[in-house]
Design a protein around this nucleic acid. Sequence first.
DNA 1: ATAAAAACTTTACGCGCGTAAAATATGGAG
DNA 2: CTCCATATTTTACGCGCGTAAAGTTTTTAT
Lengths: 342, 342
Amino acid sequence: MDDSKIRNMEQFARVSGISRPTLSKYFNDASSVRPKTRARIEEALEQNDYRPNMFAVNQNRRLTKNIGIVVPYLSDPFFAEIARNLEQRCIDAGFWPTLFSAHGDSALEIEILDSLRSLKPAGVLLAPLGRASDRAAIEKFCDDVPTILFDSNIEGVGEAFIGSDNGQIVGLSVEYLCRTGEPPCFFEMPPVNPNAKKRRNGYIQAMEAHGLEPQVIRVEGKGWGFEEVGYRGGLDVIDKGLLTSDTVLCSNDRLAMGFLSACYERGLRVGHEKDCVLRVAGHDDHPFSRFGCPPLTTIAQDYEKISECSVEALFNLIEGGRSNGPRIESLFKGKLVMRASA
Amino acid sequence: MDDSKIRNMEQFARVSGISRPTLSKYFNDASSVRPKTRARIEEALEQNDYRPNMFAVNQNRRLTKNIGIVVPYLSDPFFAEIARNLEQRCIDAGFWPTLFSAHGDSALEIEILDSLRSLKPAGVLLAPLGRASDRAAIEKFCDDVPTILFDSNIEGVGEAFIGSDNGQIVGLSVEYLCRTGEPPCFFEMPPVNPNAKKRRNGYIQAMEAHGLEPQVIRVEGKGWGFEEVGYRGGLDVIDKGLLTSDTVLCSNDRLAMGFLSACYERGLRVGHEKDCVLRVAGHDDHPFSRFGCPPLTTIAQDYEKISECSVEALFNLIEGGRSNGPRIESLFKGKLVMRASA
DNA sequence: ATAAAAACTTTACGCGCGTAAAATATGGAG
DNA sequence: CTCCATATTTTACGCGCGTAAAGTTTTTAT
């Protein structure tokens, strides 16, 4: 290959024998030029390794190819996993995703949205913090930037919401637990986001549908350190004898993992076998749940479909512009994952 | 506030009564203008909410304020945590960090570095995949872009390396375990990065220094699913009776958590109390280790210092340019965290 | 007060590319 | 071969800002 001292599209135009405007078209959308031209460009590209200057490109294009991905808490394996998935899909579609985490802090969430504006993103995939979020600020952002909400809903904000059907999910776990043993009480995490509340209500409804008395145990604690909350809350309810059932259904897996740790510490054997005194189940099937002691029975969220649908909705929004139709909410069903804990 | 229809620095100059070049200086470095001028600018800024166009800025500046942060595997809580820390420090220093994860894939790692070039970053903080990394490609990248390596070293590559003193860390754990019970055997993870090998060697040296016979148990498996590897390897060595000691020292906490899960499944009670048949310890003190069953005794890496030192080294490099001095390697000591598992 | 230094303003150019308009070339249908 | 739709080239301008140079004002030192 020649000395790769090509500094701009002008020079590459000379070297490749293709005019600069055509090159510009090509780099924007390779299929927009004649196949023969395209072949010539790509041949020249292989020998000269030139890449358009991202900043110049984005400055001048009406719409960039940037996509912002914002999650509430990246240290949460669930979000790490789904962010990875979203990222890959964006790249495959020729976009440039940038990942942000609010780290559980609503002020930071707003800062991120502010920064995001100056990226002039074509669109944003936002999993809001939830209850702590500054609704007005997010609403304003969604007015300015095409945004799809996922995981955690804020009614009426954003062009669409993609998440899990918490009613169905909790219905599944309640049904399974009732069918296989004593009806569960519900170990509820602090309501940091609407999912927490929906799962609680889902539990109550499901129990009533089974003609049973719901028993909700509210755990103290705040922030996103759910394991800690589950652990401390677990020790507390065990020591005070507050458990109203030998079966404990937790809001989510991280809480459940903390609870398992508390059970272990108090010598309570968890599982569905004979020598066990407690059954514990969670929701989400987060990546480490299967390595709990015992492995955690849980309801798996459909990571793949949620991310696929989110990205698809965003691309439709980007291409088609805002629709006048109603805001779409897509909710996916979860699947029961039976393990040793319940 | 006035209608925020200010579209460029020119207009903001008119409104604020400050010349555009001075504004340019201010936005580049607020302390580079006279305090009185600065006050006037910031007053106008409050009333007009204008922000310089990032793309135009970065196109023209010789050096951007972008910083790339690259980790090998973001779903690993250890990297999620340290990335968060690095990110915050960069922001506080007025830089614009962007986070990337290679997701355990060396091809993706190279792609990331390629993308990174077009961001014209002022500098990059890189935790390489390790053994799987394409050394030549990374070396070339480091020639072009000021880069600090952290966590996982590649000899001679990058301006500096900041990490943990694996010798000291393993020395600590071996010493503690020998002092409080039977000398440990070493449960070794697949050598995905140099740290794995260093820890193994550190174990051997420490044991020999104590006049003891080292016993290394190599576990099969590949990729970054360490819990899985620890779990499967754990079942295997337990079932085949390959454990040469009642004390098992694991390469890292994720492996140890998987091993704990295997022990639980086989009904082996882990801990240092009377009714326990096995002691297990790890390294790193990753965020969920304390919620193991039992909570994991481990050696904590000094997250704070590693990230502080990494960022500092990068800033020095950015400001001072490449030095002719020798490549610096800063290794931080770990601290023993005693919990119930050993 | 006066000179020197520092900060600011004015003016002007360039960065690399998007994009519009008009002229020209290409390629397939008839 | 001619015609016409479609691609490409030529030309030219603009995006928003960095930055250099020269002139003007303000601050600091003497």
